[in-house]
Design a binder for these strands. Structure first.
Lengths: 132, 132
DNA sequence: GTGGGTGGTTACCCTGGGGTGAGCGAGCAG
DNA sequence: CTGCTCGCTCACCCCAGGGTAACCACCCAC
């Protein structure tokens, strides 16, 4: 993402947000965490097919540093770590909803998606600015 | 953007949209075009400080191919080309609005008003982490 | 004739995000 | 004892996106 920050950081809130969700898998991680709070690492890896452990770990770290996810590590014998969305993370997910609606409406090749039917993503009172 | 498409293309509408706006400057171009419809190439380049001609042209081509912008070329003596958002482009811009609001609310160093960004962004260094 | 403006295109280079694979330290099923 | 799981970390490599720069065709002002 922001290779070298643009001369003078952010121009508007959108590219600030883009910097946060700019990773290749960030939105999928966000989405998975929104559907399954308190998710564990391996579980997340299974929920986001194709991602590698290294990248998942790196993205989770960045999201944690950005205050999007909360990481709870239990010092148990088989190491257990749980990831949850923070308040900001939930709000980010909700802010992403109109974008998802746009993508479904305007990009070809987007499946109606089974997980969408689980309804967790749309459960919140999402701010719809663009629902035409 | 999606270097090699994920196994099975898009998972949800969000990453489809992310594929469209995944370029480094795409959202800024969208935003500038939303503010100034019928913008010309050089004007756009001035509105998006830091972008190079090559990248601007490439991004405009991609946005046009994605049906986000409409390109109107006038066959005049000093070549004149005008770029406008299509309906989908406008809706995309509107779908991005909540994201911008989120960025303004949760990321430090985001100017309250875009116009301030042009001058005051220089002092807003360290676009680093926020916290929960 | 020289320079600047218009809207690009082409060629080349370089950075870094992301892919690959291996390893670790402990426990537990087999 | 062996191998598998869990949650990472480290080392290495690759390629595509983006930066740099030159060039084009045309016209106007100086």
């Amino acid at each position: 993402m922001a290779t070298v920050p643009r001369p003078g950081a952010y121009v508007c809130g959108i590219d600030a947000a883009m910097d946060v969700i700019g990773g290749k898998w960030k939105v999928l991680i966000l989405w998975a965490l929104g559907e399954r709070p308190g998710c564990r690492f391996g579980e997340l890896r299974r929920l986001v097919p194709g991602i590698t452990e290294k990248v998942l770990a790196a993205h989770l770290r960045e999201l944690e540093a950005d205050g999007i996810v909360h990481r709870e590590a239990y010092d148990e014998v088989p190491p257990r770590v749980e990831y949850t969305l923070t308040g900001a993370g939930r709000q980010l997910n909700e802010a992403l909803a109109p974008l998802g609606a746009w993508g479904r409406a305007h990009v070809r090749g987007v499946p109606a998606h089974p997980a969408e039917a689980r309804g967790a993503a749309a459960r919140a009172a999402a701010p719809r600015a663009a629902e035409a």
